[in-house]
Nucleic acid binder design. Structure first.
Lengths: 109, 109
DNA sequence: AATATTTATCGTAATATTGCAATGAATAAA
DNA sequence: TTTATTCATTGCAATATTACGATAAATATT
Protein backbone atom coordinates (compact mmCIF):
# COMPACT_ATOMS: atom_id res chain seq x y z
CA UNK A 1 0.00 0.00 0.00
CA UNK A 2 2.76 2.46 0.85
CA UNK A 3 0.25 4.38 2.94
CA UNK A 4 1.13 5.02 6.58
CA UNK A 5 -1.89 4.73 8.88
CA UNK A 6 -1.17 7.99 10.69
CA UNK A 7 -4.53 8.04 12.47
CA UNK A 8 -3.52 5.17 14.74
CA UNK A 9 -0.49 7.02 16.11
CA UNK A 10 -0.03 10.02 18.38
CA UNK A 11 0.64 13.49 16.99
CA UNK A 12 4.09 13.30 18.51
CA UNK A 13 4.88 10.02 16.79
CA UNK A 14 3.69 11.35 13.46
CA UNK A 15 5.68 14.54 13.90
CA UNK A 16 8.88 12.63 14.66
CA UNK A 17 8.29 10.46 11.59
CA UNK A 18 7.73 13.51 9.37
CA UNK A 19 10.94 15.21 10.45
CA UNK A 20 12.88 11.97 10.22
CA UNK A 21 11.57 11.36 6.73
CA UNK A 22 13.00 14.72 5.69
CA UNK A 23 16.44 13.47 6.75
CA UNK A 24 15.83 10.08 5.19
CA UNK A 25 17.51 10.95 1.92
CA UNK A 26 21.23 11.75 1.62
CA UNK A 27 20.56 14.57 -0.84
CA UNK A 28 18.48 16.43 1.72
CA UNK A 29 21.10 15.78 4.38
CA UNK A 30 23.73 17.18 2.03
CA UNK A 31 21.58 20.21 1.21
CA UNK A 32 21.06 21.05 4.87
CA UNK A 33 24.74 20.56 5.70
CA UNK A 34 25.72 22.83 2.84
CA UNK A 35 23.23 25.50 3.88
CA UNK A 36 24.71 25.43 7.39
CA UNK A 37 28.26 25.53 6.08
CA UNK A 38 27.77 28.34 3.57
CA UNK A 39 25.13 30.10 5.65
CA UNK A 40 22.92 30.96 2.69
CA UNK A 41 23.06 29.46 -0.76
CA UNK A 42 21.43 29.85 -4.16
CA UNK A 43 19.80 26.82 -5.73
CA UNK A 44 22.32 26.69 -8.59
CA UNK A 45 25.20 26.30 -6.13
CA UNK A 46 23.50 23.28 -4.64
CA UNK A 47 23.02 21.76 -8.09
CA UNK A 48 26.77 22.13 -8.65
CA UNK A 49 27.76 20.90 -5.20
CA UNK A 50 25.50 17.86 -5.21
CA UNK A 51 25.52 15.93 -8.46
CA UNK A 52 21.77 15.79 -9.05
CA UNK A 53 19.79 17.52 -11.79
CA UNK A 54 18.25 20.92 -11.14
CA UNK A 55 14.62 19.73 -11.01
CA UNK A 56 15.61 17.07 -8.50
CA UNK A 57 17.31 19.56 -6.20
CA UNK A 58 14.38 21.91 -6.58
CA UNK A 59 12.04 19.13 -5.49
CA UNK A 60 14.12 18.32 -2.40
CA UNK A 61 14.25 22.03 -1.52
CA UNK A 62 10.47 22.21 -1.84
CA UNK A 63 10.04 19.41 0.70
CA UNK A 64 12.42 21.00 3.19
CA UNK A 65 10.70 24.36 2.73
CA UNK A 66 7.27 22.80 3.18
CA UNK A 67 8.42 21.31 6.48
CA UNK A 68 9.66 24.77 7.50
CA UNK A 69 13.29 23.78 7.92
CA UNK A 70 14.51 26.20 5.25
CA UNK A 71 13.44 29.55 3.82
CA UNK A 72 13.88 30.88 0.29
CA UNK A 73 14.36 34.50 -0.73
CA UNK A 74 14.13 35.57 -4.37
CA UNK A 75 17.16 37.63 -5.46
CA UNK A 76 16.86 38.60 -9.06
CA UNK A 77 16.73 35.46 -11.16
CA UNK A 78 18.15 33.28 -8.41
CA UNK A 79 16.72 32.16 -5.08
CA UNK A 80 18.69 32.34 -1.86
CA UNK A 81 17.93 29.44 0.46
CA UNK A 82 18.87 29.27 4.10
CA UNK A 83 18.07 27.39 7.29
CA UNK A 84 15.10 28.56 9.33
CA UNK A 85 16.98 28.41 12.61
CA UNK A 86 13.89 28.93 14.75
CA UNK A 87 12.08 25.96 13.23
CA UNK A 88 15.27 23.95 13.20
CA UNK A 89 15.51 24.45 16.93
CA UNK A 90 11.91 23.33 17.43
CA UNK A 91 12.53 20.25 15.31
CA UNK A 92 15.69 19.52 17.25
CA UNK A 93 13.82 19.49 20.53
CA UNK A 94 11.29 17.04 19.16
CA UNK A 95 14.00 14.73 17.87
CA UNK A 96 16.12 15.03 21.01
CA UNK A 97 13.21 13.98 23.19
CA UNK A 98 12.94 10.87 21.07
CA UNK A 99 16.66 10.12 20.87
CA UNK A 100 17.22 10.70 24.61
CA UNK A 101 14.78 8.00 25.67
CA UNK A 102 17.72 5.79 26.52
CA UNK A 103 18.96 7.91 29.43
CA UNK A 104 16.37 6.49 31.83
CA UNK A 105 16.84 2.98 30.56
CA UNK A 106 18.97 -0.10 30.94
CA UNK A 107 19.62 -3.11 28.77
CA UNK A 108 17.49 -6.19 29.23
CA UNK A 109 18.35 -9.03 26.85
CA UNK B 1 13.01 6.20 -10.06
CA UNK B 2 12.81 5.81 -6.28
CA UNK B 3 16.50 4.95 -6.22
CA UNK B 4 18.77 7.13 -4.09
CA UNK B 5 22.15 7.73 -5.70
CA UNK B 6 24.12 6.89 -2.58
CA UNK B 7 27.47 6.82 -4.39
CA UNK B 8 27.47 10.59 -4.80
CA UNK B 9 27.20 11.26 -1.06
CA UNK B 10 29.57 10.80 1.86
CA UNK B 11 29.37 7.75 4.12
CA UNK B 12 28.27 10.03 6.92
CA UNK B 13 25.42 11.49 4.85
CA UNK B 14 24.26 8.03 3.85
CA UNK B 15 24.45 6.82 7.44
CA UNK B 16 22.37 9.72 8.71
CA UNK B 17 19.81 9.07 5.99
CA UNK B 18 19.62 5.37 6.86
CA UNK B 19 19.01 6.00 10.56
CA UNK B 20 16.53 8.77 9.79
CA UNK B 21 14.66 6.50 7.41
CA UNK B 22 14.21 4.02 10.27
CA UNK B 23 12.41 6.75 12.22
CA UNK B 24 10.51 7.89 9.17
CA UNK B 25 7.46 5.79 9.93
CA UNK B 26 5.26 6.32 13.00
CA UNK B 27 4.90 2.57 13.55
CA UNK B 28 8.65 2.20 14.04
CA UNK B 29 8.70 5.26 16.29
CA UNK B 30 5.90 3.69 18.33
CA UNK B 31 7.69 0.34 18.47
CA UNK B 32 10.90 1.92 19.75
CA UNK B 33 9.05 4.04 22.31
CA UNK B 34 7.22 0.98 23.57
CA UNK B 35 10.42 -1.05 23.82
CA UNK B 36 11.97 1.73 25.88
CA UNK B 37 8.91 2.08 28.08
CA UNK B 38 8.42 -1.63 28.75
CA UNK B 39 12.13 -2.42 28.62
CA UNK B 40 11.68 -5.66 26.70
CA UNK B 41 8.64 -6.78 24.80
CA UNK B 42 7.37 -9.77 22.86
CA UNK B 43 6.19 -9.26 19.30
CA UNK B 44 2.59 -10.12 20.15
CA UNK B 45 2.42 -7.31 22.69
CA UNK B 46 3.46 -4.84 20.02
CA UNK B 47 0.79 -6.16 17.68
CA UNK B 48 -1.78 -5.49 20.42
CA UNK B 49 -0.38 -2.09 21.39
CA UNK B 50 -0.06 -0.78 17.85
CA UNK B 51 -3.04 -1.48 15.62
CA UNK B 52 -1.23 -3.06 12.69
CA UNK B 53 -1.36 -6.67 11.55
CA UNK B 54 1.21 -9.14 12.81
CA UNK B 55 3.11 -9.50 9.51
CA UNK B 56 3.37 -5.71 9.28
CA UNK B 57 4.83 -5.39 12.77
CA UNK B 58 7.17 -8.27 12.06
CA UNK B 59 8.40 -6.47 8.97
CA UNK B 60 9.04 -3.22 10.87
CA UNK B 61 10.88 -5.18 13.57
CA UNK B 62 13.03 -6.80 10.92
CA UNK B 63 14.11 -3.39 9.60
CA UNK B 64 14.97 -2.10 13.06
CA UNK B 65 16.86 -5.29 13.82
CA UNK B 66 18.74 -5.13 10.53
CA UNK B 67 19.86 -1.62 11.42
CA UNK B 68 21.03 -2.92 14.78
CA UNK B 69 18.76 -0.70 16.87
CA UNK B 70 16.96 -3.66 18.46
CA UNK B 71 17.77 -7.25 19.38
CA UNK B 72 15.49 -10.25 19.47
CA UNK B 73 15.75 -13.24 21.82
CA UNK B 74 13.69 -16.35 21.22
CA UNK B 75 11.78 -17.42 24.34
CA UNK B 76 9.75 -20.50 23.64
CA UNK B 77 7.30 -19.74 20.87
CA UNK B 78 7.58 -16.00 21.34
CA UNK B 79 10.41 -13.58 20.65
CA UNK B 80 11.51 -10.98 23.17
CA UNK B 81 12.61 -7.78 21.50
CA UNK B 82 14.56 -5.00 23.17
CA UNK B 83 16.65 -1.94 22.37
CA UNK B 84 20.32 -2.49 21.62
CA UNK B 85 21.45 0.35 23.87
CA UNK B 86 25.05 0.27 22.64
CA UNK B 87 24.04 0.73 19.01
CA UNK B 88 21.35 3.21 20.00
CA UNK B 89 24.03 5.32 21.61
CA UNK B 90 26.20 5.17 18.50
CA UNK B 91 23.24 6.16 16.34
CA UNK B 92 22.42 8.98 18.72
CA UNK B 93 25.89 10.44 18.36
CA UNK B 94 25.62 10.38 14.59
CA UNK B 95 22.24 12.09 14.67
CA UNK B 96 23.26 14.62 17.30
CA UNK B 97 26.25 15.72 15.24
CA UNK B 98 23.82 16.42 12.43
CA UNK B 99 21.15 18.10 14.53
CA UNK B 100 23.64 20.27 16.42
CA UNK B 101 24.98 21.96 13.31
CA UNK B 102 23.00 25.06 14.25
CA UNK B 103 25.02 25.86 17.36
CA UNK B 104 27.84 27.47 15.35
CA UNK B 105 25.45 29.24 13.04
CA UNK B 106 23.33 32.35 12.70
CA UNK B 107 20.38 33.25 10.54
CA UNK B 108 20.93 34.96 7.20
CA UNK B 109 17.75 35.71 5.27
C1' DA C 1 2.01 -37.78 17.63
C1' DA C 2 -1.51 -34.23 17.27
C1' DT C 3 -2.74 -29.61 18.29
C1' DA C 4 -2.10 -24.92 19.64
C1' DT C 5 0.62 -20.75 19.88
C1' DT C 6 3.71 -17.50 18.16
C1' DT C 7 6.54 -15.37 14.80
C1' DA C 8 8.66 -15.21 10.08
C1' DT C 9 8.23 -15.33 5.22
C1' DC C 10 5.98 -15.11 0.71
C1' DG C 11 3.16 -13.05 -2.57
C1' DT C 12 0.68 -9.31 -3.99
C1' DA C 13 -1.79 -4.82 -4.27
C1' DA C 14 -1.71 0.03 -3.40
C1' DT C 15 0.70 4.07 -2.72
C1' DA C 16 5.01 6.89 -2.23
C1' DT C 17 9.48 8.39 -3.58
C1' DT C 18 13.14 9.53 -6.61
C1' DG C 19 15.03 11.37 -10.77
C1' DC C 20 15.08 13.81 -14.94
C1' DA C 21 13.73 15.76 -19.65
C1' DA C 22 10.82 19.16 -21.26
C1' DT C 23 8.79 23.25 -20.48
C1' DG C 24 7.02 27.37 -18.18
C1' DA C 25 7.64 31.71 -15.46
C1' DA C 26 10.21 35.47 -13.85
C1' DT C 27 13.78 38.70 -13.86
C1' DA C 28 18.13 40.63 -15.84
C1' DA C 29 20.98 42.01 -19.62
C1' DA C 30 21.65 43.20 -24.37
C1' DT D 1 12.00 43.87 -27.12
C1' DT D 2 14.83 40.07 -27.68
C1' DT D 3 17.81 36.98 -25.37
C1' DA D 4 19.95 34.85 -21.29
C1' DT D 5 19.74 33.09 -16.85
C1' DT D 6 17.72 30.87 -13.05
C1' DC D 7 14.39 28.35 -10.75
C1' DA D 8 9.71 25.96 -10.51
C1' DT D 9 6.45 22.83 -12.42
C1' DT D 10 4.71 19.06 -15.21
C1' DG D 11 4.73 14.50 -16.79
C1' DC D 12 6.49 10.22 -16.69
C1' DA D 13 9.34 5.94 -15.73
C1' DA D 14 11.62 3.19 -12.33
C1' DT D 15 12.07 1.72 -7.83
C1' DA D 16 10.78 1.60 -2.80
C1' DT D 17 7.60 1.28 0.93
C1' DT D 18 3.62 -0.15 3.39
C1' DA D 19 0.12 -3.37 4.54
C1' DC D 20 -1.91 -7.76 4.94
C1' DG D 21 -3.79 -12.58 3.78
C1' DA D 22 -2.00 -17.00 3.39
C1' DT D 23 1.18 -20.02 4.87
C1' DA D 24 5.46 -21.93 6.71
C1' DA D 25 8.51 -22.83 10.71
C1' DA D 26 9.43 -23.50 15.40
C1' DT D 27 8.39 -24.63 19.93
C1' DA D 28 5.06 -25.82 23.63
C1' DT D 29 1.17 -28.39 25.29
C1' DT D 30 -1.88 -32.25 25.41
Amino acid sequence: MGLAKTEMFTDQQNEIALFAKAFGHPARVAILQHLFKINSCVCGDLVNQIGLAQPTISQHLKELKHLGLIKGNVEGTSVCYCIDTKNWSTMKNVMLAFLDQDIQNTDCC
